[in-house]
Design a protein around this nucleic acid. Structure first.
Lengths: 146, 146
DNA sequence: TTGAAATTGAATGTTAATTTCAATACGCTG
DNA sequence: CAGCGTATTGAAATTAACATTCAATTTCAA
C-alpha cells in the first residue's frame, strides 16, 4: 500500500483536531495522491467515484479544504477561474499554457529575492504571492504558427 | 473639458468598428477616468449614477469590456475574486494589502528579464503574466502587530 | 453497546459574471 | 428631417463556481 506517509499525516491531523477518520477521507486522499498535476475537485470526484460510487461532490470539496489545512494539498486558481489542487511541496510558480492547459512548475531564487527587495521599498510585508506566466507551450506554439 | 485624448480614442474605436457613440459610453468613460486606482464596475456604476441616474449596471459592465477592447482600460482580478479596471498604461505588477485592500503598483525590469529566461528554458512563449505580492501594507502591518 | 459529536450528501443558497430580450436610440439615407 | 435598419440599453433571468444547510448516518470513547 502506498502513500503511507500521507495517510499517517492525515490521521495525525484528524486526531489533533478531534476530527473523525472516515472511509471517504481516506479514499479522497488516495485519489488525490494518485492523480498527478493540478486537479479540480470535480476531477477528484470523478476518480474517487470509480471505486466509491456513493461519495458525494460536497464531501470531496470539503475534504480538499481539509487536506489543505492539514498541509497535504494546496489550492491554486489560475485565470480560467476554477480551483485546482496540487500536492503540497516546496514553493514554486507556474507557466500555464492557454491552449492545452498544460501547467509547468518553476522556481527561481533570484526572482524571490528581487521581489522581497521591492516589497521592502514599499514597507510591505509579503505573506504570499502568485507569479504566473500565461502563453503557449512548445507544442502549442508550433500548432498555432502553422 | 478634460480627457480629450481618451474621448477621441474611444470615438475612433467606435467608428472603426461600426459601433455607436452614445451618451452612456461617454459618461462611463468619463467616470472611469475621473476615478483613480483600481475600481470595480459596481463602483463605476455608483459614480456614473450621480450624474446619470438611468444608466444601468449592465451598460457599465459592457462598456468596461469595450474600453478594454479599445485599449483604454485593462482588467485585473486579484484574489478577492472581483474584477477591477485600471487605466491602461505601461506594464506593471501589484502589491495587494489583504487587510485594507490598498493596491501598490511596481515594475521591475530585472524580474521581467529573468522570467523570459525561465520561459525560454521550457520553450514557452509568454503572452502575458501576473505577478502579485499579497500581504500587509506599512500601516496595516503596524495595526496587526499591536 | 450506547450516545454525543462529527460527517455525509442532496438540496439549497450565494456571489459575481454574463446573457436575454423587448423597448429605445443612433445615425445613415433619401 | 423623416424613415428605417442596426446597435444599444437595462431590467430581469441565467450561468458558473463556490459555499452552506440540515436531516440522516457514522464514528469512537466510555
Amino acid at each position: 500500500m502506498s502513500h503511507e506517509v500521507e495517510k499517517r499525516s492525515l490521521s495525525q491531523y484528524l486526531e489533533e483536531h478531534n476530527l473523525k477518520h472516515t472511509k471517504q477521507r481516506e479514499a479522497i486522499l488516495a485519489a488525490f495522491l494518485e492523480a498527478t498535476g493540478h486537479i479540480t475537485s470535480e476531477e477528484i470526484h470523478t476518480r474517487v467515484r470509480a471505486d466509491h460510487p456513493n461519495i458525494g461532490y460536497t464531501t470531496v470539496y470539503r475534504t480538499m479544504k481539509l487536506l489543505c489545512d492539514a498541509g497535504l494539498a494546496s489550492e491554486r486558481r489560475f485565470d480560467d477561474g476554477v480551483t485546482r489542487y496540487e500536492i503540497e511541496q516546496e514553493h514554486h510558480d507556474h507557466l500555464v499554457c492557454l491552449r492545452c492547459g498544460k501547467i509547468i512548475e518553476f522556481e527561481c531564487a533570484m526572482i524571490e529575492k528581487t521581489q522581497m527587495e521591492i516589497a521592502d521599498r514599499y514597507q510591505f510585508r509579503v505573506l504570499r504571492h502568485r507569479h504566473e506566466l500565461y502563453g503557449h507551450c512548445d507544442a502549442c506554439a508550433e500548432e498555432v504558427s502553422k
